[in-house]
Nucleic acid binder design. Structure first.
Lengths: 137, 137
DNA sequence: TTCCTTATTGCGATTATTCGCAATAAGGAA
DNA sequence: TTCCTTATTGCGAATAATCGCAATAAGGAA
């Protein structure tokens, strides 16, 4: 049972219809070796899937918790599934460099937010803006 | 010396030119009682400042560390200066509700990132997506 | 105060993303 | 297998944000 099928089955269970477009888009995100944009997915299918459908499906995956969305300060939104393994993105607002940080730095944060706010945070691909060591001069 | 003038002076020191447009935009953001969008600022000056200039100035404030930008899942970007006092935005991806959390929850995170990655994070208006207590059903 | 360099603005075009609506098709019921 | 309901798609238009370029003006030098 691949990652894709887990997502598809779970979506079906939650009452969503599984269309060929959704299958393709989900496969593309889950199998992409890097965080991916809506544009890249649409290109991959050369106009066979409308870009609006791509955006809607990515939004669905995000809402249902199967994908994370990230603003990496490049003017577009990047998506990734859990396939990627958790990590934090430290995005420098001066030079735009992105440093991947270990997820451990937010372990206590996760507990705090659950405990004090009953909020279940998506922290496995969190983006944090700031200034990197080189840019602090 | 108001908050606005501190920002203006500091920008001048860093070599930026102070234009009437920048003064007005900075005043608008710093004095706004709520997080504000580029559109709202442009409206406030009824077409006397081009929207591109508003976006560019807000981006400058963000890059220079005088403002934070937030995706509150409303399809537009919100800006705020330190005038607001620090707090974390917990944004529910199911119902879009935004809960303001105490900044203390990220105190240790700040130290961890400085220590382990020499990264100086902007955590005073961090947005974290997740699921709120009601939506966890 | 006047001049000069060049950062900044305004404008129009482009890209990124969302939305409304009619046509299509998924999936349960018969 | 066929039918029916309604979720989903595609399309074209609308909104959010960015960009290139010529015109303007901030602020230092004379």
């Amino acid at each position: 049972m691949t990652h894709c099928h887990t997502i598809l089955n779970e979506l079906r269970l939650r009452g969503y219809r599984i269309t060929p477009q959704r299958e393709l888009i989900i496969r593309a995100v889950a199998h992409s070796p890097h965080h991916i944009t809506a544009e890249e997915i649409a290109e991959k299918f050369q106009g066979n899937i409308n870009i609006a459908t791509v955006y809607r499906t990515l939004d669905l995956l995000w809402q249902e918790g199967f994908a994370r969305r990230n603003d990496l300060s490049e003017g577009k939104t990047f998506y990734a599934t859990f396939q990627h393994g958790p990590h934090i993105h430290l995005v420098c607002r001066k030079c735009s460099k992105v440093i991947d940080a270990n997820i451990q730095v937010v372990n206590s944060l996760s507990e705090d937010l659950s405990m004090n706010y009953q909020f279940k945070p998506d922290l496995d691909h969190l983006s944090i803006f700031g200034v990197c060591s080189e840019c602090q001069e």
